[in-house]
Nucleic acid binder design. Structure first.
Lengths: 341, 341
DNA sequence: CTGAAAGCGCTAACAA
DNA sequence: TTGTTAGCGCTTTCAG
């Protein structure tokens, strides 16, 4: 704030400094329409030497166009979302659209506030995590008249369109893989997050597929707060203390699974011979653990890219075709912790 | 996009629906000025039933006020920045200001673009990581006429004001602690990031303090890309192969330090007896490792809070007093990997 | 190729 | 307590 009182520069300032009409200055600055090289030169020089920064607020109001895409996610702490963001940014950087992030902390009311706030800037599109929203949020999305892509999840009905994976199917797939390896006494650990619908759906799919084979989860535990690695350790120890016969542990995310793995190795348990282990997400962060964790890739980057692509296409051409639901297939990697024989 | 062609609602629509003037509708919706309970009621009902979402673009243009704070950081992947964001959000949530994030990927040119883009929305303040910016960026910040807080680092001269820690001092402090424990043959591993000025300054402070005691870093290695944990493992193994006499390893961040730790334990090395270890950042993520890493807390949350506080105060009162440089003191934790005797 | 006029949707300032 | 008027800084549109 070296320049606290001087009025911000306007087009008019550039116009006066260059002796060119505001309109033509505006054209030059936006590379719109034909402007003679000489005039363009004059304008550019004046703008640069003054240090003019255009006022997008006025521009957006006049043109009724805002090159912003609202991206609404539950958290930045969970590495999943920064990775989705990367995919989105990578695609939007090829266009003139810009992502703007809003964080909901997994709270529907906060989601509603954030959404309202973002929509009031009249963005060109919305990318929002999950298919579960308050009625008011759904109403706002519907009324907005802009492309809306719900991401991460495809188990449900999108307001407009969706890109993600089926977490229910992912849970089932993992359950089948575990049973196939001959594991039988299975424990589950996850976050205590009634509002993390995707974790819930995975768990539901998981138990459902087990049930189909007559197997039930022997024990389960949910945590909240604290360091995931440490919690994974603690819960794993506690669960094995309660039931030393457990032969498989399924975790709702890779971090707590890693904690569990470290505990088991410390305790001298044979992994995966005596006890198998699997997490979820395929976070790159964790490559380099003593054992490579069995996990399932959530297609984060591709989800981001696909969602951004849909927004970009539909922004460019409102009649562009698009799929209502894009279901990606998560890849199961067995790592070193899911193979009995 | 269920509602693709219908014109977005305006104040006028609410005005007509409620039979109240636009101005009064505006007052109600902003809780400004005195409005009779009856009128307020009518307006609120009309607005809600129509599903009206105000147009902040028009509002901002008319009022010359934008309740946005631009937050410009190098990356969302490095957990440091989401944590700073939390601090910022926590404070701004008490005000009517909203953070908007821009990511630079550690590239000065991208920083310049992002800054330009954000300033063109005329935010109420800027929080930007680091003290090193291109001339153009510094010029824009100076000319903006709004409060600018440069965060994370205090080794240098801020454009307006700064909140952070001295990374040089942090490096020195760690060096002294290591020497004091009697370690002598010290190796260093870090990211290959010429543009990560803070890591560079830590390293400079580190070598400087060692030099003062006549000690030199015996070996050093820099990496880029890949999983930090895995890289930490590999580099550590390679370095110890090159020089088995090393007795201390200093890493530029906790993730690679954790990889190093896992390798050493696998290799049966006595930590910290035979080889000591230290990282940087104090990421909570890593609590739960077999040994608690020695590290230094970068005061991320407090940096975010303090920076946001400064912006909030100065936005409310342009003449508010504030410190030009707030240097926080990083706390050194010895954990289990930095104590010889 | 360049310019003039008329708003975009809202709010500051004033009047009633 | 409520309403009226005049812009905010730009872009659209239409005329030169």
């Amino acid at each position: 704030m070296t320049n606290p009182d001087s009025r911000p520069l306007t087009l008019r300032d550039v116009s006066e400094a260059s002796g060119v009409s505001e309109m033509t200055v505006s054209r030059v600055l936006r590379n719109r329409g034909d402007v003679s090289a000489a005039t363009r030169e004059k304008v550019l020089e004046a703008a640069k030497s003054l240090g003019y920064v255009p006022n997008k607020i006025a521009g957006a109001l006049a043109s009724q166009r805002v090159n912003l895409v609202a991206v609404i996610i539950p958290s930045l702490r969970n590495m999943v979302f920064p990775e989705v963001m990367s995919g989105i940014s990578a695609v939007l950087e090829e266009t003139d659209l810009q992502p703007v992030v809003g964080v909901t902390d997994y709270l529907p009311e906060k989601e509603e506030r954030v959404l309202y706030e973002m929509l009031s800037w009249r963005p060109s599109g919305v990318i929002i995590a999950g298919l579960e929203h308050s009625d008011a949020s759904r109403a706002m999305l519907k009324a907005s008249g802009i492309p809306v892509v719900e991401i991460m999840d495809t188990d449900g009905t999108p307001v407009d369109c969706a890109v993600g994976i089926s977490h229910r199917r992912a849970g089932r797939k993992m359950a089948r893989a575990i049973l196939k390896q001959g594991y039988q006494r299975i424990g589950f650990m996850g976050t205590k997050m009634p509002l993390d619908h995707r974790a819930r759906k995975r768990f539901e799919g998981f138990t459902e597929a087990l049930a189909k084979e007559g197997v039930e989860v022997v024990d389960q535990e949910f945590y909240s707060g604290g360091s995931a690695l440490a919690k994974g350790r603690e819960m794993t120890q506690a669960m094995l203390d309660r039931d030393p016969e457990l032969d498989f542990l399924y975790y709702s995310n890779d971090m707590i699974a890693a904690g569990g793995l470290l505990h088991l190795l410390d305790a001298g348990v044979d992994v995966p011979g005596q006890v198998g282990l699997a997490g979820f997400n395929g976070v790159e962060l964790l490559q380099g653990l003593p054992r490579q964790l069995a996990t399932m890739d959530a297609c984060r980057d591709e989800i981001g890219r696909t969602a951004a692509k849909i927004i970009a296409d539909r922004t460019q051409d409102p009649n562009a075709e698009f799929e209502r639901v894009v279901e990606l297939a998560p890849k199961l990697s067995f790592g070193d912790t899911l193979k009995r024989r």
